[in-house]
Write a protein that binds this DNA or RNA. Structure first.
Lengths: 194, 194
DNA sequence: CTCAACAGACCGACCGGTCGCTTTGTTTCC
DNA sequence: GGAAACAAAGCGACCGGTCGGTCTGTTGAG
């Protein structure tokens, strides 16, 4: 693995756990046994290192959370799989994301210090919500979801629920609590099906 | 208002928006027109200033979110009122909490840098969840909630939903989205009632 | 006069970032 | 094939500036 990759992974680890301001370039360098010059050969400044670490985080998010969704024909099965992925592959990926979901953890700090990055993360949230609502809408159109269900409200519950789960897990790091929360969300989905 | 109070309020404002590491004592001092001596006359160090700002935040949380709950006899009405308070009095209190819910925003950063403070915040989360489940349990015991409802699962949905709402609002600061999310949670409560 | 409250100069440590140097790997020429 | 020439990667001392925190001096109320 190249130094750049090692620096990016370590940066993501530390940023996700300690925030942007709380992470110094020196501590990233020390952790991978590199030097200032080595880091600044690959990144013009700390902010760019952070941007690329966020890109890596987006890639990891997709790889972990969307895994196995395309095999499943039923939209609500995709949703349940997404939740299980959050529980089994994403949030508990202590190698890459020891601090939990970096987008949830840094949403605020970013919005204040780098408004543009904050907006990007916010748009990611919006897309997740839209994806959930689209899946619910698909299944409703297929007629297996109960005609009285408000897919917007249900999407809202699932979406905010997922983000809340990320907060609780980041705060307490309890896999038992994580499993209980994800389980409650999954059962909510199962109950809305006919 | 005394200098100490002004410093505490300003500290809470900045900590909630920029995090602990991202906020310097100097910027707090500048914002209230004070001096280093003035601040360190009242607080032995930055960490203690932060601890007392968190205590202030807990007081504000109770004042804003529990307002008017005791008049309401029906437990689920209390829950709906709590959600409305989050929407109308707490999250949108731009004077004290321009960054949104400080507990949600700092849950991660704290756990890593001040494990003890992180645990305190986490315990606050657990208490909120317990309060929600207790209210649901009360109403279920009163027989107006449907015997097949799993109060643990419902509490989980509402609890993680509230935290998720805090994240989204902190990230986007959209009152329209906030109203929609809170509305979805309220309708979820109303639907579970007989 | 006294003493707590406050102001602000000051301190060492650490921050993000630069720069000159060494090492390493690749290309080129014979 | 092998050595010279070059470019890129990596290193670490160093820079100005800011951090949290200290200390001395001033001030104003009782």
């Amino acid at each position: 693995m190249t130094l750049k990759d090692k620096l990016l992974m370590e940066a993501l680890r530390q940023f996700s756990a300690k925030g942007y301001s709380g992470t110094s370039t020196s501590s990233i360098i020390d952790a991978v046994g590199a030097s200032k010059g080595g880091l600044y050969n690959h990144f013009p400044n700390k902010e760019q290192l952070f941007r690329e670490a966020l890109s890596l985080a987006r890639k990891i998010w997709r790889e972990k959370n969307l895994r196995g969704l395309d095999h499943l024909p039923r939209p609500t099965d995709k949703l349940i799989r997404l939740l299980e992925n959050y529980r089994d592959n994403y949030l508990t990926d202590t190698l890459n994301l020891p601090g939990g979901c970096v987008f949830v953890n840094l949403a605020v700090e970013l919005g204040e210090e780098f408004p543009h990055l904050g907006r990007e993360v916010h748009e990611g949230f919006v897309r997740l919500r839209q994806m959930i609502e689209r899946l619910l809408h698909e299944e409703k159109a297929a007629g297996t979801l109960g005609m009285d269900l408000d897919t917007g409200d249900a999407a809202e519950l699932l979406f905010t629920g997922i983000l809340g789960v990320c907060v609780v897990y980041s705060s307490g790091k309890s896999t038992a609590t994580l499993a209980r929360s994800i389980g409650a969300l999954c059962r909510y989905i199962e109950k809305m099906r006919l």
